[in-house]
Amino acid sequence: MTALVTADPDRIVRTDLAVRTDGLTRRFGKQVAVDSVDLVVPRGAVYGFLGPNGSGKTTTIRMLLGLLSPDAGDIEVLGAAMPQGLASVLPRVGALIEGPAFHPYLTGRANLRRLDACDRTADPRTSKDRIDAALVRVGLLAAGEKKYRHYSLGMKQRLGLAAALLQPRDLLVLDEPTNGLDPQGTREVRHLVRELAADGATVLVSSHLLAEVEQVATHVGIMAGGALLRQGELHEVLGGETAVVRIATPDVDLARPALAALGLELQDDPEGLVADLGGFAPEDVAAAVVGAGARLRGLRVERPHLEELFVSLTGEGFDVLR
């Protein structure tokens, strides 16, 4: 097994965690679907849960929500041990699990009404208002009276999000929330996730769309083959790979000594110079160039992307591993 790079759990006070698992393991027959996963999701985080198809993300999520029982390991959600705490914790958790699922012969609104009626923590007096608000929030108010069967994939996905938002939540578990959405829909979901996080909710988003996650996540966890390979704050996880600064200038000879004096190890670049940024602030680099009398045409900091890290961890191959 690959070495785990996990945030030190002792560094974080336990109650500050929205989700914590300890040695979480689940087998299906001989296959180990989830292999001693230690998930650490701090409260208020937007946690991007990444991994190729079949890497065990959904199985993990199903165990968090009490749909599957683990073979080994402990689960804590919002400070309560699971599955004992399911009844008290789940009302504060909104979930979208492996795609939306509703009664096809009911309208979108009737489906939400059904879910709200089944939720004993839902106030029947505010039911209509909350359903309206949820439909508005996902842009589905106009299609509320349409049968679910006649919804497009994107509309179904939106209804699933609306269901998760019927009540105020402390934790949202969104499994592939942008599946089937068009670019606008994807943007809206991103916006929604930011909004929810700004309201103080913790959001656990599983996705294989790395660029999406990179734009909203504060934390990431990367799974492959049932194991959690990396986990932590986004910049920490990416921090293993260093940022590069590209300085575009026609006056290379003027800029070089000033930058070398700053302590950068310079290399030539077609547009000017390039160096590992290290701990330097980009604005100091710019100031040094200009201060030396060189004309600065452009300065670009290139950070490694999640995609490169992801591929380096999980492999290039397209084939499902198991």
């Binding site: 009490g66 749909l67 789940l90 979930a95 699990i97 509703f102 089944c118 939720d119 004993r120």
Partner: peptide
Amino acid sequence: TGTLRYLLTLPVTRGR
């Protein structure tokens, strides 16, 4: 239809 998982995570406890 998959609605069972959403009922159970509302949660509607299984006994209820």
